[in-house]
């Protein structure tokens, strides 16, 4: 059922019946290290390239999550995958050995939100019964694609972020036990004219603000309705901008807002503003947040993965960078 401008209330809310997270070595030493299901010692994981290592992480996350859900391959309608690489190869290559129909998504770092929206609408409408949603990112593959060779001696700017190495997968089902997705808001592409590819927080904050405010208006609720409003990878500076922008639109998010990118690392100096990447929100969601929800510490969470729709071609041609964010409400009961 459509609510307001961009939101949907799900009449048959899908449940997250299983989840799995694979974290790289840096993330494992971070503040959420204890929550990850699989912690890697090396980001190469015995593969001959970092791209293959990312595929392996992605594949492992999907397979383990499916294992835990107890579903058979034939019962799963689709595997939905997404990542940051050109032509989302980490997704398609990890899905090629899984005999389940495949849907590839790209929404930069917001991909996880995008696919949760689509998956939950499909399940709620009755077309799908079971779906897996997974994203991955890898520091070394993102670095060479969006920035510089690994060994080039450059200095990161003070607004830059560190791409998260890891992958997370959620299995959504129309029946079973687990937190429910009861509403979602599909975001609009917002461009406030930021050109600096090293300042993703500033690119994504207006999109996150727009999506969150629209969501709250559409559902006619206040931020306090949620125990936690968690954005994808705004980083510390981007979070500050979000709070300021939301305040201007009449919402005070200070007490309920938190950011996956800001919390994933242990303030290691090289990570500067925190984590980023398509894997960031799915890794944090499929470990920390969902475990907190299961233990009862969090009842209702608004997950808002944010993405900077950046392309090396566009930014080299001097274009501004648009941002995107999608919101997904997760909780045990909708009232």
């Amino acid at each position: 059922m459509k609510l307001g401008e961009q939101s949907y209330a799900l009449e048959n809310p899908p449940k997250i019946i299983a989840h799995y997270s694979v974290a790289g070595p840096v993330e494992s030493k971070g503040m959420l290290g204890n929550f990850f299901d699989l912690k890697l010692d090396s980001d190469e994981w015995g593969e001959k390239s970092h791209e293959l290592a990312e595929c392996k992480m992605h594949h492992t996350a999907i397979m383990k999550a499916l294992d835990m859900s107890g579903l058979e391959f034939k019962d799963v309608n689709a595997v939905m995958c997404g990542d940051l690489l050109n032509q989302i190869i980490a997704s398609s290559y990890s899905a090629k050995d899984i005999e389940i129909p495949y849907l590839g998504f790209y929404g930069a770092c917001s991909t996880f939100g995008e696919m949760l929206c689509v998956a939950s609408l499909m399940i709620s409408s009755g077309s799908f019964k079971n779906v897996t949603c997974s994203t991955s990112s890898h520091f070394s593959t993102a670095e060479r694609q969006y920035r510089y060779p690994l060994e080039l001696g450059t200095q990161p700017t003070p607004t830059s972020q560190w791409t998260v190495t890891g992958s997370g997968c959620s299995v959504l089902s129309s029946d079973g036990e687990g937190p429910e997705i009861f509403a979602c808001t599909i975001g609009r592409v917002i461009d406030l004219g930021v050109k600096d590819a090293n300042n993703m927080g500033a690119v994504m904050a207006p999109a996150a603000c727009d999506t969150i405010c629209t969501h709250l208006n559409d559902l006619n609720i206040s931020p306090e309705f949620y125990d936690l409003i968690i954005t994808g990878d705004l980083g510390k500076f981007g979070s500050k901008l979000l709070l300021e922008l939301a305040r201007e639109r009449g919402f005070e998010l200070k007490d309920v807002h938190s950011d996956c990118g800001s919390m994933i690392f242990n303030n290691q100096p090289q990570t500067i503003q925190g984590g980023s990447g398509a894997g960031c929100s799915s890794l944090v969601f499929n470990s920390y947040i969902i475990k907190q929800m299961k233990s009862g510490n969090l009842k209702k969470v608004l997950l808002v993965p944010t993405g900077a729709l950046l392309s090396k071609t566009a930014s080299m041609q001097g274009e501004t960078i648009p941002g995107i964010a999608h919101a997904v409400s997760i909780g045990y009961r909708y009232n």
Binding site: P158, T159, L192, K240, Q273
Partner: peptide, 18 residues
């Protein structure tokens, strides 16, 4: 905030190099 105000606000508040 419009584009101009936002980019001014960002460049004013963004963390600077030491």
């Amino acid at each position: 905030m419009n584009k101009k105000e936002y980019s001014e606000y960002v460049s004013k508040t963004a963390p600077k190099s030491k």
